[in-house]
């Protein structure tokens, strides 16, 4: 079943076409990764799906509703959550309170907020840190807090923006485990990530963008052996 349908989406910034005629679909309970070189338009695409940017043309359909150009908070209410690369916790609140805010104001509703919070904290491996002040967390823990907060809103679709950037190998592995657990708990994930190892490990499907256009779409194995992708993004090992 398709959760998100993006149809010939285009975004023009003055003279620059950041996204040009991109069409893609995201299947329910999958992890779909979007990769591509810097400036390929990954963030622009994310910003349009979450409502921070209005597309120049094209259509975004989520869960059967047209959400093209809708305000961010309304898209959030429809069931799209976003985890940012630069995590912005509420620094003076504890880990638990941070997640509780998301649970209470999100789709979970106040009644189930406590249970939702406990579950989200557990899925993201934050249970031992629940009473720590968010401002005192390391970057790896902050990223997982960002994810916990996002899923506490009980989204249907989670947009994860480079959750592995700047993490070491051990932290990356823990994070990809968390991502898989989130998917298995019934949340569809759209991931933007530069860490190809991590992408290979978690993705059910990979979409490659270059200069605003989609150049490949398929399983990780197929996509990463595609010559166009190697030329545009991966490169070849030096001889």
């Amino acid at each position: 079943m398709t959760v998100l349908t993006i149809e010939s989406l285009t975004k023009q910034f003055r003279g620059l076409r950041a996204i040009e005629d991109v069409t893609l679909t995201v299947e329910r309970d999958s992890i779909t990764s979007i990769v591509g070189p810097n400036g390929a338009g990954k963030s622009t695409l994310f910003n349009m799906v979450s409502g921070y940017l209005k597309p120049t043309s094209g259509r975004i359909e989520f869960d059967g509703h047209d959400i093209t150009g809708m305000a961010p908070y309304r898209i959030c209410r429809q069931g799209v959550a976003r985890a940012f690369q630069i995590s912005k916790p509420f620094p003076e609140l504890s880990v638990q309170e941070n997640v509780l805010v998301a649970a209470s104001f999100g789709r979970a509703g106040e009644r189930d907020a406590k249970a939702t919070t406990t579950r989200a904290i557990d899925i993201c491996h934050l249970t031992p840190l629940r009473d720590r002040r968010a401002g005192s967390l390391s970057i790896g823990n902050l990223r997982r807090l960002e994810l916990a907060r996002a899923i506490a809103a009980r989204p249907i679709l989670l947009l994860a923006d480079e959750p592995c950037a700047g993490l070491n190998d051990a932290e990356t592995r823990e994070l990809t485990n968390v991502l898989s657990k989130i998917r298995d708990s019934g949340v569809t994930i759209l991931l933007v990530e530069h860490d190809i190892k991590a992408v290979r490990r978690v993705s059910d499907r990979v979409v490659v963008l270059e200069a605003g256009r989609k150049i490949a779409d398929g399983s990780a194995t197929d996509v990463f052996s595609d010559q166009a992708v190697i030329d545009a993004y991966l490169g070849t090992a030096p001889a």
Binding site: C76, R82, A102, F105, G106, A153
Partner: peptide, 18 residues
């Protein structure tokens, strides 16, 4: 609670549905 979150980070608060 919503106002306190606005005080700490307004954009994040909006994103979380406040």
């Amino acid at each position: 609670v919503g106002l306190t979150c606005i005080g700490q980070d307004e954009d994040t608060a909006a994103m979380l549905g406040v």
